Simulated scan of single mutants.
Amino acid sequence: MAARASALKPLATLGRLCSGGRASCAAARAFSCAAARSQLRRVTGTGGGALTGTVDRFGGVTVDLADAGLPGDISEGAFSRLLHDSLAAWKAEGKVAVWLRVPISLSRCAAAAAAHGFTFHHAKRRHAVLALWLGDGESRLPGFATHQVGVAGAVVDESNGKVLVVQDRNKTKNAWKFPGGLSDPGENIGATAVREVFEETGVRSEFRSLLSIRQQHDLPGAFGASDLYIVCRLGPLSYDIDFCTHECSRCEWLQLAELAETANTTPVTSRVARLLLRGLERGFGDIDLPLEELRAVYSGAFYQLYQRQLER
Rank of each mutant, 00 (worst) to 15 (best):
P142A: 05
S80W: 01
E93S: 05
A92L: 01
D64I: 06
D136Y: 12
R140G: 14
H122Q: 07
A88F: 01
L70H: 07
K124M: 12
G143N: 14
A131K: 14
H116Y: 10
A78C: 08
S75P: 10
R125H: 02
L132E: 09
S86P: 01
E93H: 02
H116M: 03
S86Y: 00
K124A: 15
I74D: 02
V129A: 06
A131Q: 15
S107T: 05
H121V: 11
W90M: 08
D136S: 15
A114L: 00
A110E: 10
L132R: 13
D67K: 10
L70P: 13
F120W: 10
A123V: 08
D64Q: 14
L87S: 03
G59H: 04
R101D: 10
V61Q: 06
P71I: 00
S80M: 08
P142I: 09
L83A: 08
A113E: 10
F79I: 09
L87A: 06
T146P: 06
G77E: 14
D73W: 05
S105F: 08
L82P: 05
A92T: 08
S75Q: 09
R126D: 15
Q148E: 15
E138T: 10
P71H: 07
A115E: 15
H127Y: 15
G69C: 06
A128L: 11
A88S: 09
S105T: 10
R81N: 03
V55H: 10
G137I: 08
R57A: 13
R140E: 15
W133C: 12
V102F: 02
F79E: 02
K91G: 04
A92N: 01
G117V: 12
L70C: 04
L82F: 00
G77K: 08
G59M: 05
A68N: 02
R125I: 06
L82S: 02
G135F: 06
A68E: 01
V63N: 03
H122G: 11
G150I: 06
L134C: 13
A128D: 09
A92S: 05
H122N: 04
L70N: 04
R140L: 14
L132K: 13
D67V: 03
A89R: 08
A92G: 00
R125V: 11
V96R: 04
D85V: 08
A145L: 14
V102Y: 01
D85G: 12
A68W: 13
A114I: 06
K95E: 00
V98D: 03
L130E: 09
A89I: 01
E93P: 01
G77R: 11
F58S: 15
P103H: 03
R125M: 07
L130S: 08
E138W: 07
D64R: 11
L70E: 07
A66C: 11
A123P: 03
A111H: 01
G117A: 12
F58I: 03
C109A: 05
G94Y: 02
L141G: 13
A115F: 12
F118Y: 05
F58K: 15
L65Q: 03
W90L: 00
G60L: 08
H122W: 09
G59V: 02
D67E: 14
D136G: 05
A97K: 02
R57L: 13
S139D: 15
F79L: 01
